[in-house]
Design a protein around this nucleic acid. Structure first.
Lengths: 262, 262
DNA sequence: CGTTCTATTGAGGGAAGTCAACAGTGGTGG
DNA sequence: CCACCACTGTTGACTTCCCTCAATAGAACG
């Protein structure tokens, strides 16, 4: 019985952790008062486990909840006619992966678990509760949707106008900074337990070419991936070959409030 | 003096038209009452002309206004280290091209005039005025930002996982539907006065390959472009080779309100 | 009329895809 | 405990789609 007890304790801890992470990220882009942060932390949801490689939100589905990622890695994807997938964003712990569904419940994309994943399913009803009571929270949600959009937009540039080695380097730079800021490691070393096929789907390449490109990055002592951990040996070089400018990540601190003044 | 009089009349007509188009599109995704629509129509701004090929919002700039496109075509772009551009979205008359700047005033992208363009510069102050007074309008703004994000996301798929002919066909399908809905033509025939180099920037190709691909589409009697007008000879074929599913465009009619109930 | 931008076409090269084989790893069940 | 299987990673050989370079024609514009 002890293991299962430990399990449930882990879960409730995780739920709080995830909400903390989520509130922290909202606060990094939008000024939130203590009361507003508490409101975010008060969100109620249901913990769900999703095994790796399972889609848990499907293209064209109508959803009534959003998924806060507690642990693991999730990809937002579309696919072409032959079923080839393309990821348009990666999500890490603390991300509300489909917050956009709050204003647009019919999804035009899917979410897939890239690793074993723990999510907190937060009903739209809950999100509306805090958004209506606290306009600044609604504004923070809005701003987070825009930040996601900014990442999609940069990925278009990445996939459209950079060669393989730059593309992969750019992706690793982005994930390094995001993981670092979420407290999931440092930019020099962080977990990214995706298969090479997943990286291919994220960069619009084939798995085989990802393999060769990773080898090139390893050979040049820039970055290496081993058993799901990224080790950056030369951050400046990675930024250079990845042609990486983090401006699109909207990390410049809280933007001024628009819906009211503090 | 008569010509210049006609000119100024044109301008004021255009301003009203653009706000009408904008209000109509907001209303197509979000339920707005008559009063709320009037509030949108009451937005004050300043008309500006921008010549073709001029950037009018720059990467990393901090802006205090948003640009409502009255006439012409605008591209949102990023660029790689060598200055190669990649468009991540096209905007047409009635689009508030950088509405996202309202919540994130520091841009991580640029806007460029693909044709001679007329814009209405709407100060953030004005947008805040109606957003604060009418939460449903704020919600409609939010939803429109999400719709833009959905387009970026689909473009990642387009550029990452489709070959040249599908990529171009997909773009033409999207623009056909958007122009049709904005009353700028029909899906069988609409204006798209972009150069082949612009189409290349939108699809992550080179201008030369765009030329060859257009020739292929013309030869197969699917679609042809001549002096800035697209003529679709076989819509179904275009949708098929473009692997086009309009779900991502969020055209399914107004979504339910979340910030309050009507 | 030149000048400049845009479109068109050919020839050749290169980055990335495809096909195929094999090694390492972990999980499962006999 | 080991055999088996599925998945992932690695590498080689070949192909192909698209890019690059180059030349020319047409269109727009002062």
């Amino acid at each position: 019985v002890l293991p299962s007890l430990g399990w449930s304790i882990d879960l409730s801890l995780s739920q709080g952790d995830a909400l903390q992470l989520f509130a922290k990220r909202l606060g990094s882009r939008s000024l939130l008062s203590g009361e507003e942060q508490s409101a975010v932390l008060s969100l109620q949801g249901q913990i769900k486990q999703v095994p790796a490689h399972k889609d848990f939100v499907h293209l064209g589905e109508v959803v009534d909840h959003a998924c806060l990622l507690v642990e693991g890695f999730v990809g937002r994807f579309g696919q072409n006619g032959e079923g080839l997938r393309q990821l348009s964003c990666l999500h890490i712990a603390g991300d509300m992966a489909d917050l956009v569904s709050l204003v647009s419940p019919k999804t035009g994309w899917g979410l897939t678990a890239l690793t074993d994943v723990t999510i907190l399913r937060v009903p739209h009803r809950e999100l509306r509760r805090v958004a209506v009571a606290y306009p600044a929270v609604a504004e923070a949600f809005w701003r987070d949707c825009v930040a996601d959009g900014s990442i999609f937009s940069e990925w278009v540039v990445n996939v459209g106008r950079r060669d393989a080695i730059a593309r992969l380097s750019h992706l690793l730079c982005e994930m390094a900074l995001r993981c670092e800021r979420a407290g999931l490691g440092s930019r020099q070393s962080f977990r990214l337990p995706l298969t090479q096929a997943d990286l291919a789907d994220a960069t619009g390449m084939t798995g085989i070419h990802v393999n060769r490109t990773l080898k090139a990055l390893r050979t040049q002592s820039i970055v290496s991936m081993y058993s799901g951990t990224v080790t950056v040996h030369d951050w400046d070089a990675l930024v250079r070959v990845g042609d990486f400018d983090p401006a699109y990540m909207l990390l410049d601190g809280p933007a001024p409030r628009i819906l009211e003044t503090i």
